[in-house]
Design a protein around this nucleic acid. Structure first.
Length: 223
DNA sequence: TGCCAGGCCGGGT
DNA sequence: ACCCGGCATGGC
């Protein structure tokens, strides 16, 4: 029988929202993803793998200045030249290949059109992106959420560190487990997921580096 | 000066 | 199913 009264929020949901509200009050809106178009965001998502964002910005600027930050242009561009342009992002040979792998996928499956790609069912698209060499779960979710506006939660090193240090997940929880932890306990809202992940990164950069500064962390009063 | 950054892959147990 | 080395530049 259907419930006639609203069920109270679960303790975990409440806790996750407390964390969110505290972070939002402290850091304010993060305006993610820092990129102007879905394609720029997608390229950035691949380039930023284990790399400081400021280095990615240089690489993206190189592509922009060369007029090459578009699917067709990058698809045609010879691999060695692409590698040179994205050099500041580090792992440039590897990432040039990964960008090419994605473009190959985009053109074979969606005629090089990101809008077409995002018309695909979200879970189906996520599985397909994960099959592209060089796109793992974080990159796939970043593309889906920040370039496509799809409600999927992005998990990164900061997310894992922050949650495990506060004993919300076990140390050895894997990616899918952590992602589900958020998605099972929060409303399916791309705007919320967008801001939440960005805020966790803001917190992580400030207080949750490998050397923790927990005594200064804005979350300390919640635990 | 070394450590770290918004991961992921491939080969070895 | 894990574990680990490799990939590379630039800032603090």
């Amino acid at each position: 029988m259907q419930q006639l009264i609203e069920s109270p929020l679960s303790p975990i949901t409440q806790q996750l929202m407390d964390i969110y509200n505290t972070l939002y009050q402290h850091f304010g809106p993060q305006h993610w993803w820092p990129g102007e178009t879905p394609f720029e965001i997608t390229v950035g998502a691949i380039l930023t793998q284990n790399t400081a964002w400021r280095n990615v910005e240089k690489a993206i600027l190189n592509l922009k200045r060369a007029g090459l930050l578009a699917p067709e242009a990058l698809y045609r561009l010879p691999l060695p030249y692409l590698a040179t342009l994205i050099r500041p992002a580090g792992f440039f040979n590897l990432k040039a290949k990964r960008l090419k792998n994605f473009l190959e996928f985009l053109f074979k499956e969606y005629e090089g059109d990101l809008d077409r790609m995002f018309k695909e069912d979200t879970n189906t698209l996520r599985e397909k992106l994960l099959k592209v060499r060089g796109i793992g779960p974080e990159t796939a979710d970043s593309i889906l959420l920040y370039a496509g506006g799809k409600p999927t939660f992005v998990v990164d090193a900061y997310t894992r560190r922050i949650l495990s240090r506060h004993n919300l997940i076990s140390e050895e929880a894997d990616y899918e487990e952590i992602r589900s932890f958020f998605m099972d306990h929060l409303p399916e809202d791309a705007g919320l997921f967008n801001e939440y992940h960005a805020l966790l990164v803001a917190l992580g950069k400030t207080y949750c580096r490998p050397k923790p500064l927990c005594e200064k962390c804005v979350l300390k009063d919640l635990f």
